[in-house]
């Protein structure tokens, strides 16, 4: 986001939770809970791209979906600001929700499963307008044609079915569908991870172009940190359902404050054979969300863990303006960002 612009909150997420019950036996007795998203507080500002990163099972997709109420949250509020009004998105009933949907849209991960194979491209892109109601067929046809050109496809493609398109083209169709109602906020859930590198770049460029043109705000969910760094203004790192760190992109990548962020950054392979990687090898794998480790859920893999970490859950604290982290030992740790982790090794080349 340009610095001279004032930050206007678009979306305020307060105490958002999504717990899935674990049931056993015929009586479906509840024997436990999977805390997919556990008490998340964050604000998305107008016109920014908020990157959400984390490994599989960290709850980033569930977060994106509960925000849009594709999955109903267990608890928490999502406040949506627009036209000087504040709407509590979580309190809307079905009818009101349908009306509001047009402002909050989603681009899905897998372009091969997120398009109905029996619908033509025209019908797929037009569906949100038909569901939203209030448009004549002429208006719909006009809008769909404009959109399909904008995403780099041609009007002649509209009568074909999804199977006739490649992965990259399908993702363009998915983007057209998300944007057809002129939304304010778009959740892009791993929108480029199923695509090849050369196609991925095309789609990233397209997303940026459309954002600038239509004043969009994105929540960009991905596991690829290089991609997230490229597109995001701010980045939020998740681990086992919780936000462990959040900051402006550059600040987070160069001055991480959470050990998990540090390890994640060091694990990224660098496409440069002359770069020596001081890799921090995390032992084990991501913990079990149904049986969270005590205290800080990262402590079993953390090389800095102390006694306190095993018992007390760390709060997300604001360290410097805009930089949040949840770790007991922030003050006494000196963590390395990508500046120090990836060192050019001159002797090797």
């Amino acid at each position: 986001m340009p610095e001279n612009m004032e930050r206007v909150p678009l979306l305020e997420i307060e105490g958002l939770k999504k717990y899935y019950p674990i049931e056993a036996g015929i009586s479906k007795k509840k024997i436990g809970e999977v805390k997919a998203v556990d008490n998340i507080n964050l604000t998305v500002y107008k016109n920014e791209v908020l990157g959400v990163v984390g490994e599989s099972g960290c709850g980033k997709t569930t977060l994106g979906r509960t925000v849009l109420r594709i999955i109903e949250p267990t608890a928490g509020k999502v406040k949506f600001h627009f036209d000087d009004k504040e709407v509590d998105f979580t309190a809307l009933d079905k009818k009101e929700l349908r009306k509001m949907r047009r402002y909050l849209q989603m681009i899905f991960q897998n372009p091969y499963t997120s398009l109905n194979p029996r619908m033509t491209i025209f019908d797929i892109v037009a569906e949100p307008m038909r569901l939203g109601g209030g448009f004549t067929e002429d208006e719909i046809s006009e809008r769909v044609k404009t959109l399909i050109n904008k995403v780099g496809l041609e009007v002649k493609h509209l009568n074909r079915y999804p199977h006739a398109f490649s992965g990259g083209q399908r993702q363009r169709i998915g983007i057209a569908r998300a944007l057809v109602m002129d939304p304010k906020f778009v959740v892009a859930d791993e929108a480029v991870s199923a695509l090849d590198v050369s196609i991925q770049a095309q789609i990233l460029n397209l997303l940026k172009e459309l954002k600038d043109e239509n004043n969009l705000t994105y929540m960009f969910i991905a596991h690829n940190l290089s991609v997230v760094e490229h597109v995001s203004d701010r980045v939020c790192v998740m681990y086992l359902g919780r936000v462990v760190e959040m900051a402006e992109t550059e600040e987070l990548f160069y001055h991480p404050k959470h050990p998990y962020t540090e390890a994640l950054l060091s694990a990224i392979p660098v496409a440069d054979p002359t770069v020596e990687n001081n890799r921090i090898m995390l032992p084990g794998e991501v913990g079990n969300a149904a049986n969270l480790p005590s205290g800080c859920c990262f402590h079993p893999r953390c090389k800095y863990a102390c006694e306190e970490c095993k018992t007390k859950v760390p709060e997300l604290r604001e360290l410097t303006p805009g930089h949040f982290a949840a770790c007991h030992r922030i003050e006494d740790l000196k963590l390395e960002g990508i500046g120090e982790l990836k060192v050019k090794n001159s002797s090797k080349s």
Binding site: S198, I199, A201, Q202, L204, N205, K208, H230
Partner: peptide
């Protein structure tokens, strides 16, 4: 066409 870590810029990627 790959975004490179630590080289963030506002320029579009050079897609093929």
């Amino acid at each position: 066409s790959m975004p490179v870590l630590g080289q963030k810029s506002d320029k579009p990627l050079n897609a093929i």
